[in-house]
Design a protein around this nucleic acid. Structure first.
Lengths: 152, 152
DNA sequence: TATTGTTATACTCTATAACTATA
DNA sequence: TATAGTTATAGAGTATAACAATA
């Protein structure tokens, strides 16, 4: 069966679509937050700070090293978007959005949901068809494997 | 309608799935090529070199700067995977896989197709359903917009 | 002793600008 | 003058290792 060849070519096409789509989504997010003068990683952190959170929590949510969170926190602080507040456990520092930070976060959320590709390009029915397929494609939800250099 | 909220939450879930899936695919590829001791960008270039190609062609295919291709070519050359051969137009250099390079490329292709997520996790029917949805999601094919820093 | 955050440092990926050789 | 590749350099994003303070 030369099916094998054709099947593989089709799979490669799907893979390329997947890559194109997520690249587009990333570029959209980057463009959105660039309008606020924010680097992408900073913006990602801001969006996660719905409530004051320990830096180690953020490290876990973003799946990156604690030292890098220090770096991000410094950037957010310089921009006046967060303050570090001491936790009960005095080793811990909570990152809390300032009023300016809150405003920025709301604007980002607003922009992101308005520009949402998935809502703009697919009908409700299409989304209902897509969801289970993507779930199967993702495979076992799995407990967040630790990773090396690419992820965060 | 509180539909709006629910619709957005669902869209966010789909977006997360998309991101998880492509991250998984990238991690799989990285793990595969790490077994050959190859950095991901080098491996990507190797896979594209089915036939000796000018460096500028590679720059176009990978959508990155010519200077970076010089960098990649240096790495491939150090590993003995390619040689630079002069083109007819003497400004041009073709990158040609050595025997070692060919062997590596075949092994990578083999591994990638064997581990293919899309073939392993979806049935033929599911793939046929998925394809048009992803195409709509990608939107207009578009002529490869030039990009800033994230892409290559 | 184990954990939280910080510092210093370094690595990978990738680009820009200026340059060389050829066309 | 324009094009292909190279060099030097820089910047973003992120990690590792050693460390200080606290538990």
């Amino acid at each position: 069966m030369a099916d094998r060849e054709a099947r593989f070519a089709e799979a490669a096409r799907l893979a390329q679509l997947l890559v194109d789509i997520t690249e587009q989504a990333k570029a959209d997010f980057a463009a959105t937050v660039a309008a606020f003068g924010l680097p992408v990683p900073v913006a990602r952190a801001i969006v996660l700070l719905t409530t004051p959170a320990p830096m180690s929590d953020l490290a876990e949510q973003l799946a990156c090293d604690r030292s890098y969170i220090t770096n991000l926190a410094d950037q957010m602080e310089e921009r006046g978007l967060i303050t570090r507040v001491a936790g009960k456990d005095r080793r811990v520092k909570l990152l809390a959005l300032t009023d300016a930070g809150l405003a920025v976060r709301d604007q980002i959320s607003e922009a992101v949901s308005t520009n949402n590709m998935i809502l703009r390009r697919l009908t409700d029915a299409e989304r209902r068809t897509l969801a289970p397929l993507l779930e199967r494609l993702r495979g076992a939800p799995g407990p967040r494997a630790p990773h090396q250099g690419g992820g965060c």
